[in-house]
């Protein structure tokens, strides 16, 4: 198949994708790097000047930055914990024989297809509203004091909303992996005298390891830059209680017009994401070889 003219054709067919992606990645990234060394505010046009790493120093020592890092990590880890544990439990449940399995599956994966702005507003208003929300009514019906979710537990509330959207993703992937488990392996283990717990620990869980890792890595990529849910619920507040790195950079750039500072933040975000990306790429790459 591989003759000389097909090689040339291959190059030609690849070129648009490669060039466009290269441009999309390299040019803005280079600009971000460049801007991060400038004092550059959109409100003061023409006043740009080179300041070296000052923006980084400023950004890194900003108390909001520390809060943002903590919030970002809490958000990522919180959602991961909920979706991994919940997703595994749900997948194990859905893998059992039951009536209406197809419909149950559809219901469970539905939240993944809800756009983030909708889920955030629905949860914020109709479910978590301290006076008229459904949760408040349930709490009152049970004789408890309703919780003012976004005032008292703002970050937790956002974690719940985001986790609701990602739980189906984790469930679906773990379920897919579960269904590819060779039933003979399980039967062999049962013949060897393994009980349900041992089967789960020694057969099922190792089989799921790869799917779980994929879930962790992909969710991390997306969760590091949760934005819309924060924008429409808390706007990063109260104070900086729900400001994550993505939101902080957005606020710096488009609310305070501080291009230099925001760019420094952007570079930091890229570095953090790359640390995660290295692992994911290694894994997918390994898969490519098998």
């Amino acid at each position: 198949m591989a003759t000389t003219h097909t090689r040339a054709a291959a190059r030609l067919t690849l070129a648009p994708s490669v060039i466009l992606l290269l441009a999309w990645m390299a040019i803005p990234l280079a600009m971000t790097l460049y801007f991060s060394t400038l004092r550059y505010n959109l409100l003061m046009p023409g006043m740009e000047s080179y300041v070296g790493v000052e923006n980084y120093g400023w950004f890194l020592t900003d108390p909001a930055f520390k809060a943002a890092i903590v919030n970002t990590l809490t958000l990522v880890l919180g959602v991961l914990a909920i979706t991994l544990i919940g997703g595994t439990a749900l997948a194990l449940l859905l893998d059992q024989p039951m009536w209406g399995q197809g419909i149950v599956r559809l219901l469970v994966i539905a939240p993944f297809f809800v756009m983030p702005t909708v889920s955030a507003l629905v949860w914020k208003n109709m479910l978590m509203h301290p006076v008229n929300g459904l949760f408040a009514w349930i709490a009152q019906s049970l004789g408890m004091e309703p919780v003012d979710w976004f005032a008292e537990l703002p970050l937790f509330s956002i974690i719940v909303i985001v986790a609701w959207g990602w739980l189906p993703f984790a469930t679906l992937i773990i379920l897919t992996a579960l269904q590819s488990l060779d039933s003979e392996q399980r039967e062999a283990a049962e013949m060897d005298g393994a009980g349900p717990v041992s089967v789960f620990a020694y057969i099922t869980l190792p089989h799921l390891a790869r799917a779980l890792t994929v879930v962790v890595l992909i969710e991390t990529i997306f969760l590091l830059s949760v934005f819309a849910e924060i924008l429409v619920t808390t706007n990063g507040g109260p104070g900086t209680a729900t400001t994550n790195l993505a939101f902080l950079i957005y606020a710096q750039a488009l609310l305070q017009y501080d291009i230099g500072g925001a760019s420094a933040g952007g570079v930091i975000a890229v570095i953090l994401a790359n640390i995660v990306a290295v692992f994911l790429i290694r894994m997918v790459g390994k898969n490519l070889e098998s």
Binding site: S17, M25, M31, A246, Y250, A253, A277, L280, G285
Partner: peptide
């Protein structure tokens, strides 16, 4: 693999230049 890696780049990293462009 390289194409995959571009997907890993966080949007906020390029928000500023894309917005300005």
């Amino acid at each position: 693999m390289w194409m995959l890696s571009t997907k890993m780049m966080p949007a906020v990293g390029v928000l500023v230049p894309i917005y300005l462009l």
